[in-house]
Design a protein around this nucleic acid. Sequence first.
DNA 1: CTCCTTTCGGAAACCGCTTAACTATGCTTA
DNA 2: TAAGCATAGTTAAGCGGTTTCCGAAAGGAG
Lengths: 345, 345
Amino acid sequence: MAATIYDVAKRAGVSTATVSKVLSNTPYVSEATRAKVLAAVAELGYVPSLAARGLTKARTYLLALVIPYTSDYLYSDPHLLELFRGIEQETRAREYQILLSTADRKMAGAHAVESAAEPYQRAVRSQYADGVIVVASSAFGSETPPPLAQQLPTVGIGYHALGGRHTVHSDDRSGAAAATRHLLALGHRRIGVITAVPQITALLRRLEGHRQALAEAGVPWDPALMVWGDFSDASGYRAVEPLLALPHRPTAIFSFNDRMAMGATKRLREAGLRVPEDVSVVGFDDIPAAAFFDPPLTTVRQPAREMGVAAARLLFDLIEGRPAEAEEIVLPTELVVRSSTGRLA
Amino acid sequence: MAATIYDVAKRAGVSTATVSKVLSNTPYVSEATRAKVLAAVAELGYVPSLAARGLTKARTYLLALVIPYTSDYLYSDPHLLELFRGIEQETRAREYQILLSTADRKMAGAHAVESAAEPYQRAVRSQYADGVIVVASSAFGSETPPPLAQQLPTVGIGYHALGGRHTVHSDDRSGAAAATRHLLALGHRRIGVITAVPQITALLRRLEGHRQALAEAGVPWDPALMVWGDFSDASGYRAVEPLLALPHRPTAIFSFNDRMAMGATKRLREAGLRVPEDVSVVGFDDIPAAAFFDPPLTTVRQPAREMGVAAARLLFDLIEGRPAEAEEIVLPTELVVRSSTGRLA
DNA sequence: CTCCTTTCGGAAACCGCTTAACTATGCTTA
DNA sequence: TAAGCATAGTTAAGCGGTTTCCGAAAGGAG
């Protein structure tokens, strides 16, 4: 079995209290004693049991990352992974570890028999984490994650409002407006929009940005041009169908994420349309694959990594009782023009 | 503060031992008492503290997922995510949670000041997990992950041999052989190979399969046709360079993962070469994006999800003291022919 | 040379839960 | 009717740390 604090104490010839003090850098321990203890720790390869520590201190040095998902897709979202990386980077710096709590619905046939919140609440309640980062999704069925999170420091990512709780999100509205203005500047007037589940406010904000840009240009908004996907490539592929069937086909498509944009591109090509010559396509996220897509995808970059970093920092502020930088952190988006958009023929 | 077992006991009018028994389904508790306790649990919303439980039982109900990585890329590998999903599916079914332990090297300038093994060992030693799943990578610098894992049930994914420890991997050799035979059947004789870090035996097996297929067809193996990447799109893009510079250019490229294949395709196009008319490209993994790539990528499918599931099951067998299904589980690969490969002109 | 601080280290309680050992019933069984 | 045995529930001892409280030794002041 692994060495315990008793083993270390015996070996160093001191009490466990002293070992504990040395390890937590409490003052009033002589240099000589400290050295003895440290030597014993090194010899035994002692690492404190987190369970035991978690029992006495309020801290477990674990943070729960709650990823609710409705579809397989969301989980394997490259964009989500970038968030991950950012969070991970910060936790690593503080000797924290990440507890992955996917909050899925248990399904029985077509019915969700358990709310997405249930496993999440268990994770939170079992006191195994010092804080929680919740990634927005429609899995909770509504904008707000379950109330229990209020008992624990919680930071949401991708929520635009979280009932007084802290959030980090990007400037979806501006990003979508920029993308739309770009298309308008190229002469496009009929712009198809591929969006997804309406519970995600980030998507609503993108739609607002899109409509705002249209309005500025005096272009009327046509609801018939809006189609629905579920974030996956495949759903983007399918979403193009009704757009193609329209009497007056759009000359550009703005997809609210990159993967649907890629699926859409595939479908357009199969319909004999060239991108961008016949139809321009814009995505959202700027996932790594976007630059390597053919044609390289024009998209709105979200600083995913930075969002992860910001969320983690915010959470640590909360955990450590420091005043939070801000209740809501909004990171800028940026239009990245590549080759999937072109001037209207 | 959260309710403890004492609160429940007091409310139900029994001892904590009885509460514990009810919760762990120990026999010799009357129905009436059981009902009382359960009611109290429900009223208080009691969830046992995992830390306290972990201290008495040997179990923490956590499993450490160790993801060593050398590059950003590996971490955001869609293929890795599929593994994830498989593991997650199994852990969820058993009320286990996943502790994410990325094992990275701490860098100081260009030098690794701490081995990748260090944070991993901490994770393992701190006794916070009941078992470990280690995903193969070159981060450990050698084939074998650190010895400490021997103290804890450990399963490797992607290792082809693990010194008596349990592993799950796919049949890389056959997959690579099938891909190579496919290219040979299309008339290709000069096949470029894009591989990555040599410490990963899966890649070595792929190379063996490739060479074996060449040998069968009586085609000599030319080391000049082998180039190196780091798994990323960008490295695939760069890796094509020396191949293009060859006096006798290859007519096909076999990349040992999909993302490098995508990067390579981009570079080929920029050189004015069409895929597959001028150069055929084959990948490995069959990540979701492969089907949506242009052209849809011919690749070798690895059953990533299933590998994750198998690894988790194996680990649970080990943890629960059941005889393991097998020491080494090999899952089949499958050639998926799409449109990035064509007959030699 | 006392007396008072400061510094250093130990004893012991406690965190929340599990479990072995034990007690107290009520029923069988001989 | 006494012994034997399930059954039902309790007591108390840890698990491996942290932390409060205390005492001892050493140093400084009067």
